[in-house]
Design a protein around this nucleic acid. Structure first.
Length: 855
RNA sequence: GCGGACAUGGUGGAAUUGGUAGACACAUCAGACUUAAAAUCUGAAGGAGAUUAUCUCCGUCCCGGUUCGAGUCCGGGUGUCCGCACCA
């Protein structure tokens, strides 16, 4: 009987669906719970291999936990708002809503064809009116609890299209559609006070011990807590009309005597004043505004400054006067938007000082270097040392000098110690149509008020025009005009929509119960949350996870939740990569159009016969066309084979390289499993009795495998679990094994084997379970316990080393004492020879492992 | 530019967390079955060398260090990938 995924996979998918096998029970306090969640997908229309990998990993854990007897929640939804829908509207004249829901429908079918153990009863999309309603409700609660405010903030502005651009739409400083030079422009926008939680978000990381260290480190650096000082530079008298002081933040108050200039951000208040009287300053500021607003763009730009002519006094020495520059690398959003530069001990300041011929005075002397020999060439010294050239700070180390300098600033009443954070408040306004409307009214009397709760949801108008650039909500003839019910005054709606990160910051709580009456059902959330295992790409390591952690805290303050941390366990999976192919004209070619030539050396286009150049394996992307469509793979090999491939070989947190050979070999092995099961079924039916002592050996094989696979599953080492299965099947399918195994042993092994396989290849497992004649569904069986009495513990291979080099090995009982092992080793011919004529200085023995002679 | 990660045979990876480097696979080669091919089964295999059933040396990106012992720990470097706040 052939293995036919085309027939069996849809059959079992239908059955699971009909029987609601994975619809999870409501909270049952008597049952241990597990909430397994993968990051929900953006409904682009087609699933890609990254999805297959992500959801397969989650599915294996889900199915495994079910067999372990847990009450498992494993839901699915859609992160449905976002720019691609608007782009599709502009390019293909299809309404974003229609486009999105169509995509959801086709992706749901695709996901179901993977055989995922998902509770589809809890499905929702973030663009559903129901979800919008609750999200707007939450926002109003945040507003009432003082977690929201409005301020001016910069955006990328395309002066040709008259529209706001996302960072990804700015390519080398130019708008992606118009090609115009992008400018920075200030808009009034809504912000969430995430920075109030900086310390709490930082401290919370320590307790997240089921998170990857690298993710926690990235978040820690992102929050960027630093200790330093704020203080004022007094502006020299003759410029006092412009300003009397400049406030700066520094983490190096110890280097203050090495200061040779001050620099302010291009949008600093003083820069604005200066630009009113200086065309050159204005020109320079305008030039700075042409740099895109992303931090990356600002940091990469060549460092330049504009000398304002203003001078400030050194706080510790009135006679030292420093020039003030407007500099393109000073960020107004960090610290005070102004710094002092100490070129000797900061590379960026040094580069700047060399460019504008500013003095470079070293004030830190490295250990073991004479004060006179400290010379700064083209490299700033940022290491430890003793302070020099700094009057009252001389001779102190950096740490002491910081303290003394801060105390002095305090004494002079011009500064103080300050803790600063890199994390800034979360700007949530987007000038786009396809997002959740921000429920705010601007009343004609100037008041800004939330929309009354009973008027929610504020939904998007459907009759919109995408032929004009800009936000269609702004341009809609009627949508934004309304009246305030309470006062009867005229009002205008907020036409900005929420950042889509808001949508994904609480969806995991919504899955606990689709409660009509409120966003989050507290009882259900209390049972299910936190998510026990969250799984997603490393690209979300900072923003999405940090926003969700903040949101959960904010939801606690507003009474929606009782916890602070949403995700107890976090796992970041690697990307799916594929070789890139291009023809001689440099066009990218999809892998399915490439075949090997007759000599196997070259690759050819399947239709045209053109030679194809093979490039390096990179992350699958539409732009390079190095995509393999999961649908094609499932049609050709079946979902079980696809699942098997994405789990095997590479560890799940590393990148995986998709290859034709790899998927084919997976398929071959799946077939081999099927044949082995059929063979064992026959053995069971023959009812033969075989040699008894050999049966114990076979049971040892299966129990050893159960142990290895279980431990590897617990560690999420799916590639190793799969290697264990390869070994097991290899052992079981040997003709010798099949001859000697008894009917009874074969039956026991078969039962364990199929259950073990079920999380990985659920369709094949279900089919074999039924085919062999076991009762019920395999997905509802209990995971086999491994019996330690069958695991071989008695003997051990002990490696004998001389000076750490392997010279031989001995097979001895595991518990053998050192004395005895040395004796056996000394009687071993080879080791005796190797030791001959050498003086043994020391013997190191690690029980059951290694014996090392040091000679 | 800043922050983070990774680097082991021809290829993907394993190594009990400082104790036999290369498990398990892919590709390759040889054999069996076959008229033949495919499929399947069996076996070989890091590199170099020798006195070739065996043994020796070299070998985990590069340079240096700690240790009886380093793929694993420490310092320095190189390369590749990810994130940088309006992509999701």
């Amino acid at each position: 009987m052939d293995y036919s995924p085309k027939k069996i996979e849809p059959y079992w998918q239908d059955l699971w669906s009909k029987e609601k096998s994975f619809a999870c029970e409501k909270s049952d306090k008597n049952l241990p719970k597990k909430y397994i969640l993968e990051m929900f997908p953006y409904p682009s229309g087609r699933i890609h291999m990254g999805h297959v990998r992500n959801y397969t990993i989650g599915d294996v854990i889900t199915r495994y936990r079910i067999t372990k007897g847990d009450n498992v929640l494993h839901p699915m939804g859609w992160d449905a708002f976002g720019m691609p829908a608007e782009n599709a509207a502009m390019e293909n004249k299809i309404h974003p809503k229609e486009w999105t829901y169509k995509n959801i429908d086709s992706m749901r079918v695709q996901l179901k064809s993977l055989g995922l153990a998902i509770d589809w009863d809890r499905e929702f999309a973030t663009c559903d009116h129901d979800y919008i309603k609750h999200q707007q409700n939450i926002f109003i609660d945040f507003l009432k609890n003082d977690l929201v405010y409005r301020k001016e903030s910069e955006v990328n502005w395309d002066p040709v299209d008259n529209t706001v651009l996302a960072n990804e739409q700015v390519i080398d400083g130019l708008g992606w559609r118009s090609g115009a030079i992008v400018e920075r422009r200030k808009l009034n926008q809504w912000f969430l006070k995430i920075s109030d939680f900086s310390d709490d978000l930082l401290d919370g990381l320590e307790k997240l011990n089921k998170w990857p260290e690298k993710v926690k480190l990235m978040q820690k650096n992102w929050i960027g807590k630093s200790s330093g000082a704020v203080f004022n530079f007094k502006v020299v008298e003759e410029f006092s009309k412009i300003a009397d002081k400049i406030e700066v933040y520094t983490t190096r108050p110890d280097t203050l005597f090495g200061a040779s200039f001050c620099a302010i951000a291009p949008d600093h208040a003083i820069a604005t004043i200066i630009s009113q009287n200086s065309d050159n300053a204005l020109k320079f500021i305008k030039k700075c505004q042409k740099i895109a607003s992303s931090e990356e763009a600002i940091e990469k730009v060549i460092k330049e400054g504009f000398d304002t002519g203003i001078k400030v006094q050194h706080p510790f020495d009135k006679d030292i006067k420093l020039p003030v520059y407007i500099a393109n690398f000073v960020l107004s959003s960090y610290g005070k938007g102004a710094i002092f530069g100490c070129p000797a001990h900061d590379q960026r300041d040094l580069d700047f000082a060399r460019k504008y011929n500013l003095p470079v005075l070293p004030v830190v002397c490295p250990e073991n270097v004479n004060k006179k020999d400290v010379v700064i060439e083209n490299e700033a010294y940022i290491g430890e040392g003793k302070i020099i050239n700094s009057k009252f700070l001389d001779g102190l180390n950096i740490k002491e000098a910081k303290k003394v300098a801060i105390n002095k600033l305090k004494e002079l009443r011009i500064g103080k110690k300050e803790i600063n954070y890199r994390l800034r408040d979360w700007g949530i306004s987007r000038q786009r149509y396809w997002g959740c409307p921000i429920p705010i009214l601007y009343r004609e009397d100037g008041k800004i008020i939330p929309v009354p709760i009973d008027e929610l949801p504020i939904t998007l108008p459907e009759d919109i025009d995408f032929s004009q650039p800009g936000n269609p909500l702004e341009k809609h003839p009627t949508w934004k005009y309304t009246t305030c019910k309470e006062t009867g005054l005229k009002a205008v709606r907020e036409t900005d929509t929420f950042d889509t990160f808001i949508d994904s910051s609480w969806y995991f709580a919504r899955f606990c119960e689709l409660d009509d009456s409120k966003p989050i059902n507290r009882d259900e959330a209390n049972y299910w949350l936190p998510v026990d295992q969250y799984i997603g790409g490393i690209e979300h390591a900072i923003l999405h996870l940090l926003y969700s952690r903040f949101f959960t805290r904010a939801l606690k303050i507003t009474g929606h939740l009782e916890i602070k941390e949403p995700f107890d366990g976090m796992f970041t999976q690697g990307m799916v990569c594929h070789e890139t192919y291009s023809n001689e004209r440099g066009d990218w070619i999809e892998p399915k159009f490439v075949r090997k030539g007759d000599n196997k050396q070259e690759s050819l286009h399947i239709d045209t016969g053109e030679k194809i150049k093979i490039g390096p394996s990179e992350k699958m992307s539409k732009s390079k066309k190095n995509i393999v469509d999961p649908d094609d793979i499932i049609k050709l090999y079946g979902a079980d084979t696809a699942r098997w491939f994405v789990l095997s070989d590479s560890p799940p947190d590393r990148d995986i390289f998709w290859t034709e050979a790899g998927i084919e070999s997976s398929n071959k092995f799946i077939n081999k499993i099927w044949r082995t099961i059929l063979d064992y079924k026959e053995i069971v039916e023959q009812k033969d009795i075989k040699n008894k002592s050999e049966q114990i050996q076979f049971m040892k094989v299966i129990y050893k495998s159960i142990k290895d696979i279980t431990l590897n599953l617990e560690k999420m080492s799916f590639n190793k679990a799969i290697a264990n299965i390869y070994s097991l099947i290899g052992e079981l399918s040997k003709s010798d094994t099949k001859e000697k195994i008894s009917s009874e042993t074969a039956s026991k092994i078969l039962k364990h084997l199929i259950i073990i396989l079920s999380p990985f290849i659920p369709h094949l497992a279900e089919e074999s379970w039924a085919h062999v004649g076991f009762e019920g569904l395999v997905c509802k069986q209990s995971w086999p316990e491994f019996d330690e009495s069958f695991t071989d513990n008695e003997s051990a291979k002990i490696v004998v080393q001389i000076n750490g080099k392997k010279r031989g090995e001995l097979l001895l009982p595991r518990e053998t004492e050192e004395k005895e092992v040395v004796e056996v080793a000394n009687n071993n011919n080879k080791i005796k020879n190797d030791l001959a004529g050498k003086e043994i200085k020391k013997i190191i023995y690690v029980k059951g492992r290694i014996l090392n002679f040091v000679v």
